[in-house]
Design a protein around this nucleic acid. Structure first.
Lengths: 352, 352
DNA sequence: TCACGTGTAGAAAGCGCTTGCTACGCGAGC
DNA sequence: GCTCGCGTAGCAAGCGCTTTCTACACGTGA
């Protein structure tokens, strides 16, 4: 039924070994023979059997990219960049790699499941993007899984995710703390003193780091931080909307709202607008990530630009072994404060 | 080095066949034996060798999802929905499927490459999302590839993509034509007569269908359509911006701009704003797709909502064989006109 | 002329798993 | 008591490929 190597060999009047060598190009084959083989491959529409090949060669051409939310451009941009660097080991025919992105939905269980699946497929490399969950149990499970993957020869790269202890994984971490601090410093410089903070999900590293940066900025100036001015929620628009409503209820005199990311900030803007508050006249708003739509918000969003594409591309190259891992197995990728229209000096009249 | 089925068998004092049957759960195994085997699996940290398993069983648990642009939420939402429905054939341990999304970047060559790669992996199913390229050459190549995939037992589902002739693939197509017509009808109803159109890339089916809907609406009312009022460009923000600048240059009296999708519309809004034109006071703007950020644009974007998540989920279920294919192998998925703040009656003073 | 290197191709042994068939033990039916 | 059926488990034959080792032909230098 399906065409096999042997069929091609028969048609080209050579042995299966020769066909395999032509296809893999890692052994000298006379030009005439090669052409005969390639013609046979074409004639028969032969497609290599991946599993069989992977089994015999004990390697596979799969590269996994794990993302928390595939519908979020934050991950899409990184994943796309990683994928763009995942290319075959050379120009040879069939030398392609299958770069696949797996959507964990932010669930540690699914993350683990996918890692097992990739381990089962003997993936050549795995790139994990985005913040991790800080649950000790899961952290341990993930760390163990990553170690075993590395032991089995799978290259493991973390992109936008803090290093994992004992895991022999290269880490490219975003400076979320520094970014968060820069953002709040900017607001403090403008004169804001009552700043609401809409944080991400409690247990995520990204959430914690950004929040730590915010608090560090406040502490450095001796600005008090009311615990009630921080609200946690998922990284989505709705969360931003609801959290803002809640913040305004708790403290109507807030002059600024910092959101966990741009998407959340958009929700915050919507809530403020509905409350009849102008941005930044009444309340300043800031986001994080600088996703493409942020510049088109009205007013344009002040945010921290994260070089998602660059980091993803670099992670991809490291995963492919085309770029050396940074010294110490980890590098910190800096964000850049983008000051735009959504932040301004607090109005005199606002607050009590 | 690595643990194999045989190692597990030895430790559990059973034959490899028994271990395999415990793992696959498709053959009666005495409870005591099963437990002994599972303990051994745990003790040894055994992970099934996917390629070997796929080779022996002549099936794989890979499901491919092809998208044009993974950084675009349009695709991210669909892909996520597809993936959420891709589950294993039952509760049995290890019954997971590996749903993977492949980013073609809109390039037909990469699309073909990924299909070959998936064919090579003997994927269980393949879901292709988004519009296709209308180049005859490529259409033929894709069609042939899909047919061969189907012949090999891979289920093929098209999601948001028109049917492919001779390809034995289930198609869930969006009614882009109807949506485009509804949108332009809405503008015509408001009184607009000079409507600019920012279309997507020339050779894509999505582009053509939406544009056809637009033109059909105009023709139905006898409204002349100046060829210069249509500009083509990629599906991104920048394209919307530049096209709008160009449209305004060509015809400053336009009272409305219809964009190929919401992202493009955002760029259009930016250009209009920079030109000092108010939305919808001076110029109305409409998008397509109703992506999450569209409601947060200022003013909120009038657009056509496409049920991306629903369509993706359905495609996923069909790919898994958990839902019957629609009669005739294809279904048309309707969009819904969402009238919001970005469109209004044309101002009296505008135009010449 | 003979031995030898060089370039090219084949034979065959697996890679780790699945599964059809066989084998075995045991209680039930005749 | 013997056969039969049933519930389990093992045997062993592949699945389609890669790769080591071997074989052969040919040209070359001694």
């Amino acid at each position: 039924m399906t065409v096999t190597l042997a069929d091609v060999a028969a048609r080209a009047q050579v042995s299966p070994a020769t066909v395999s060598r032509v296809l893999n190009g890692n052994y000298p084959v006379a030009t005439a023979t090669r052409e005969r083989v390639l013609r046979a491959v074409d004639d028969l529409d032969y497609v290599l059997n991946g599993p069989a090949s992977a089994l015999a060669a004990a390697t596979s051409d799969l590269v996994g990219i794990l993302v928390n939310d595939i519908a979020d451009p934050f991950f899409g941009i990184m994943a796309g960049a990683v994928q763009s660097e995942i290319v075959g080991p050379g120009g040879r025919a069939g030398g392609e790699r299958l770069a696949v992105v797996c959507n964990t939905g932010g669930s540690p269980e699914r993350e683990l499941t996918y890692l097992t699946l990739l381990q089962r497929q003997r993936a050549a490399a795995v790139v994990l993007t985005g913040g991790a969950v800080e649950d000790t149990e899961h952290a341990k499970a993930i760390s163990g899984k990553l170690r075993r993957l590395a032991d089995a020869g799978t290259r493991v790269v973390l992109c936008g995710r803090p290093p994992v202890p004992d895991a022999d994984a290269v880490a490219l971490a975003f400076d979320n703390r520094g970014g968060g601090k820069a953002l709040t410093d900017h607001l403090l410089d403008l004169g804001h003193r009552r700043i609401g903070y809409i944080a991400g999900p409690e247990e995520r590293t990204t959430t914690r780091h950004r929040l730590e940066g915010h608090r560090a900025a406040l502490a450095a100036r001796g600005v008090p931080d009311d615990a009630g001015w921080t609200v946690h929620g998922p990284y989505d628009r709705r969360s931003g909307y609801e959290a803002t409503v809640e913040l305004l209820r708790r403290e109507p005199s807030l002059t600024a709202v910092v959101a966990a990311n741009d998407t959340v900030a958009l929700g915050a803007c919507a809530a403020l607008r509905e409350a009849g508050l102008s941005i930044p006249g009444d309340v300043s708003v800031a986001g994080f990530d600088d996703l493409p739509f942020s510049v088109d918000a009205v007013p344009a969003l002040t945010t921290v630009r994260l070089p998602l594409a660059e980091a993803g591309a670099r992670a991809g190259r490291i995963a492919m072994g085309r770029e050396a891992a940074p010294a110490g197995g980890m590098a910190v990728v800096q964000g850049e404060l983008m000051v735009r229209g959504s932040t301004g000096v607090p109005s005199k009249g606002s607050g009590g």
